[in-house]
Amino acid sequence: MNAAKQRLALRDAAHWHARLGAAPGCSKTQGQWQAWHQQDALHQWAWQRLQNFQAELQGLSGPLARHTLAAGEPRLDRRTVLKGLLLGIGSAGIAWSGYRQMPVWMADLRTRTGERRNLTLEDGTQIALNTASAVDIRYDAGQRLIILRAGEIWVQTAKDSRPLRVRSAQGEMRALGTRFSARQYDGHTQLDVFEHAVAVRNAPLATEVIVQAGHRLDFGTGPLPQPRPTTQDQAEWRNGRLVIDDWSLEHALGELQRYRPGFIQCAPEIAGLRVSGAFPLDDTDRALAAISQALPVRIETRTRFWVRVLPRG
């Protein structure tokens, strides 16, 4: 079965789903859908995939849905099936549960909370994904593009005639033979350059800002600010360490929160305490214990997913 035809059928199925939902009980629409459904076995295949996908998103018939979604033609894997469906959903203007998160859980490469990954791309470029991160890779004859969907990545570029760019929600970072990290926040991007330089542009007509090694640029969609100093410690997460230099306790706990499921709550009266040190990211319980020894605070663990940091005594 041709993969392009399958994606087209999936898109049409999503359109029919939207039409049926917009006109429940309309006999004319029902009849038109029925004619489409019976016209081709491929249409029936696509409609079944759509139904299974919707059931999976809603938490219904999980094992059956997963089995059916995975059981298509070998050339059309599960992620391609979902992309075909979501293309149709987007063009039909409807939003199912979970649709907003499509760029993250549909990404080419991603990590779970607490997971980190090191990879070498086809050109020799090395990348690392921090906790809860997602990227898409777009390499072709004219470009090397990494799209940062969520979280944080570290990049060490390989020599190649094609430019290498990292695109975030706020703009693009063009590597100038370099080693750097980029982190996607809500509303802004943080770039840290550790070697050589990176050119940043956040609008088609905006002037590029060159960020040299040892500097950071936090940018949104407005005018680009001036870079400010940074340190190599910002990439120590690659080595499993969170290096802190005179941070507020609230800030430190917020960073540790990224590496563990659940919730860390900090009492307001101790949020401003200052903390420094290097803390393990692969054992956040040990990191919290170390903080409790360094500061006048205590750790209250109600469950693995709910931790409170309170004044000692």
Rank of each mutant, 00 (worst) to 15 (best):
M1I: 12
N2E: 13
A3K: 11
A4G: 07
A4K: 14
L8I: 10
R11W: 09
R11H: 08
D12R: 13
D12V: 10
A14C: 09
W16M: 09
G21E: 15
A23D: 12
C26N: 15
G31F: 02
Q39Y: 08
A41G: 11
A41S: 15
A46M: 09
Q51N: 12
E56T: 08
H67K: 14
L69K: 09
A70N: 14
A71F: 06
G72E: 04
E73Y: 13
L76H: 03
V81H: 03
G84F: 09
L87R: 05
G88E: 07
S91H: 13
G93W: 10
A95R: 14
A95S: 14
G98V: 11
G98W: 11
Y99N: 11
Q101L: 11
R110G: 02
T113S: 06
T120D: 01
E122I: 09
D123W: 05
I127N: 00
T131W: 06
V135Q: 00
D136E: 10
I146Y: 01
Q156W: 01
T157H: 03
K159Q: 13
R165K: 13
R165N: 06
A169D: 13
M173N: 03
T178K: 07
R179S: 12
H188I: 08
H188W: 11
D192M: 07
F194L: 05
H196R: 10
A199F: 05
V200F: 04
T207G: 08
Q212K: 04
H215G: 00
R216S: 10
R216Q: 15
L217P: 02
L217D: 03
P223T: 15
P227V: 02
P229H: 12
D233M: 07
A235S: 15
N239Q: 14
G240P: 09
V243Y: 02
E250A: 14
Q257P: 06
R260E: 05
C266M: 07
I270C: 07
G272N: 14
G272S: 14
L273G: 05
R274Y: 09
L281T: 05
D282H: 13
D283E: 10
R286F: 07
A287E: 03
A287S: 14
I291G: 01
S292V: 04
A294M: 11
L295I: 07
E300S: 11
R302K: 13
R304C: 02
V307S: 04
V307R: 06
P311I: 05
P311R: 13
